[in-house]
Each structure stands twice: as structure tokens, then as C-alpha cells.
Design a protein around this nucleic acid. Structure first.
Lengths: 143, 143
DNA sequence: TTTTTTTTCATAGCAAGCTATGTAATATTG
DNA sequence: CAATATTACATAGCTTGCTATGAAAAAAAA
């Protein structure tokens, strides 16, 4: 029995993910942010002043991962946290000026990584590729 | 300007990779191995008694990552290292009995993860999906 | 009201990945 | 041969992710 990594979906998926992350990392480094902060920023750019719980519902990582990343974001001056008057356990998470200022540049970085990576596929293929990923993710999260 | 993560290839790729890893992790845990060791084992099952350099050439991680993972594999009794008589800097890496014994079970675990994940795609779609990933990876490694 | 359960977040501890840098052995060059 | 460069691997230090567990506040139940 043999097992060729180039024929293993899991292997390719993992490799591809690291290449995407590495590329994005390089492009956003000048903005003073890192890849793990990206999904959180995306959500906070849509709406801040939310609790960690609310954020967690929008982001596909575990609670502990989010908590740790938020700590680093606070350390890096990207977010601030205020008390929630309605619930002493929860806090409200707010973007700083620094974080709001880089929004468009960050969007552009991500868009350009995506566009360049998918450049090897035709428009139709790109659409299929995205569709396949959404279906696979949908399946895997559910079981 | 808006940015929907569900429309971002990079986001989906990252999410999918974590789902694959999590799934594989669960299935190989009983074998006494973890996901990061998997690619290295795959290669060593093909051919052991190699130097770290040789291994590195077959595996898509950085040298430091490989060195660290090899240390944990040695700690976990999966590999042993012997001196290379021809070059005192290099060592030869050998699988232990424990590692060779789990080979087929490990293959099966990975195959089943792949098969179940891709189950949501038709045979043709699966082939296209793999092809797309190989093309994207090929593009991204080269620049 | 007191007790118990649940909720919200934090922390500990680990793996896996990266970049940057160190170290000893080998190869090359002057 | 001596000096220098390169090679093979290790180590330091960080981020991102996970599971498991703890702690305090809030909610529910007794």
C-alpha cells in the first residue's frame, strides 16, 4: 500500500493554507498586524462595541484562541476593552484609531493575495473552487 | 467597501485546513501520533535511514520546524538517530518498530478523512478540486 | 434566600508553524 | 596550510491554534 502526499486532499489543503498565511503575513506586516488578528479585525470593522461572546459567534476559532488573540491585540494597541454595565463578566471590545485607520489597506492586501493565488484558475474554475470549499467546510463542521 | 470572509479564498482555505487537521488528529490519536508528525512519517515509511537534509527536501516545512518535530518524535519513541560516519554534522534518521507498526492504520485514517471530507463532491469535482489545489500551490511556491 | 447551575472569560500547557540566529563540521580559496 | 565560506542542524523566541480547567458573575432552582 502506498500513500502519495500529492494525492492527499488533507496534505494539499494544509500546504495551501500555510502558503496563503505566509503571503498575507508579509503584506500586512507593514500595517502592524498579523494573520491571526485578521478575522477578528474583519468582524470588528463591521461592528465593534461587542462582547467576546458575540465576536466568538462570528469567528471560527475556539474561545481560548480568541481570548489569547484579543490579549495580543490589546497589547498591540488595536483594541480597547470597557466594562459592560449590564454584565460584569462580559466586556465591550472596541477598535482603536490605529485599527480603523488600516482597514482599507488591509482589505486590499487580502484581496490581492486571493486574486493572485487564484490567478491560475479561470473565472469559472475560481467560482467552482470557492463553492467546493464552502461545501467541504459545511460538511466538516456539521459532523 | 466591504469584505465578506465567506468570499475570501484565504479565509476558507485556512478554515478548511483546521477542520482537516482536527479530524485527522482525532483519528490518529489512538495510534500515538499527532498531525505534524504525519508528513514526516509518510516520507520515512517510504525510506528511512536518511539525513535531516534529505528529509527536508521532501517535506514542505522550514528546517527549524522539521528539527523541532523530529525532537518530539524521538521523545515519543517514533524515530531514532544514529551518527553519519561520512559527515559528523549530519545524522541518519530511522523509524522505530512502534512507527513502522502503525503505518497501515495511519494510512487508513488519512484516507478516510480525505474520502469523507470530499464526499460532498462528485468524482469529477473531486478531481478538479485536487487539480486546482496543485495549481494554486505550484503558483504560490514559485513566487 | 441560599444553593446549584450556567455563563463569560481567563489561564495553563501543548503542538506546529515561522523567522532569525548560533555552532560545529566540512569545503573552498588564497 | 591557514583563513574563509558554506553546510547541517540546533536553539531562541514568537504566533496561532487546540483541549482542559479555573474563577467570578449571573441565572435558576430549591
Amino acid at each position: 500500500m502506498n500513500f502519495e502526499k500529492e494525492n492527499s486532499a488533507g496534505y494539499l489543503v494544509n500546504h495551501m493554507a500555510r502558503l496563503f498565511a505566509k503571503e498575507l503575513q508579509q503584506r500586512i506586516a507593514p500595517l502592524g498586524i498579523v494573520v491571526g488578528q485578521f478575522p477578528i479585525l474583519l468582524q470588528l470593522w463591521l461592528k465593534d462595541g461587542v462582547t467576546q461572546k458575540e465576536l466568538l459567534g462570528k469567528i471560527d476559532v475556539e474561545q481560548a484562541t480568541l481570548a489569547n488573540t484579543l490579549n495580543r491585540m490589546e497589547r498591540d494597541g488595536l483594541i480597547k476593552r470597557t466594562k459592560n454595565p449590564a454584565d460584569a463578566r462580559a466586556q465591550m471590545i472596541w477598535l482603536t484609531e490605529k485599527a480603523t485607520a488600516i482597514r482599507n489597506s488591509a482589505y486590499e492586501s487580502a484581496q490581492s493575495v486571493n486574486a493572485e493565488a487564484l490567478q491560475v484558475l479561470s473565472e469559472t474554475e475560481q467560482a467552482h473552487f470557492m463553492d467546493y470549499m464552502r461545501r467541504i467546510i459545511g460538511k466538516m463542521r456539521s459532523d
